[in-house]
Amino acid sequence: MAPILELKAVDKSFGGLHVTSKVSFAVMPGEISAIIGPNGAGKTTLFNQITGHLRSDAGAIFFKEENIVGRSPQQIVARGMGRAFQIASIFPDETVLDNIRAACLSRLGQTRKFWRSVVTFRQATEDAHAILDSLGLDSQADRLAFELAHGDQKLLDIGIALALKPALLLLDEPTAGMSPDERQHTRALIKKLWKAFDLTLVFIEHDMDMVFGIAQVVRVLQQGALLAEGTPEEIRANKQVITAYLGEDF
């Protein structure tokens, strides 16, 4: 089987600062994997390169067997990539439902329709409710997004990405800033969504329970380079990773 996402010697520097250097790895379809590493290791920059937010200086990124370096985020999203952000990226003054519905309308190619009210778009509305339901947010559908609790805003952000029915979903620290209870809930939820939506999922995370609890593959970045790659067990036992990131008492 061909990988759905393949990075080949991907580079990015800002001035003299080498943020990612010669990163190569392949993500197989259906895989759930984690990217870990200390702050400043280049994890988010790597996501920005994959999603077209930043242009890679060198290397190639194959998504569904096509090099997407130089493509715009819009084009990459259209090919089936979805993304949620470290700081919840939502539409604060719209209802929770409309946040998701906007994404559904976009996927269905209906955002140019200017005559009928959004509520009459049945397919988009049903899809949006289904996604809110799977996130446990449907009871809050009519609230404005900014009124939601922080944790729920993060879930809404994931929901917006999910609504695009992406083949590959990238989550940037889905549990960042959450309470321990919310973390536990989100951990279980993400695993459930991965199964229910048949996703290929890559997430960046500092929560080790989540990383070692649900990831099939763990990749470690350090100073912009891929330090190690393997199953959770392999990573846990990797001497280099322990010294660089996990610490002796992990």
Binding site: T51, S72, P73, Q74, V77, A78, G82, R83, S89, I90, F91, P92, D93, E94, A102, A103, S106, R107, T111, I160, A161, L164
Partner: peptide
């Protein structure tokens, strides 16, 4: 409200 997010909706 969030032009960046609109780009990641594919618009």
């Amino acid at each position: 409200q969030n032009p960046d997010r609109v780009r990641f909706l594919g618009r």
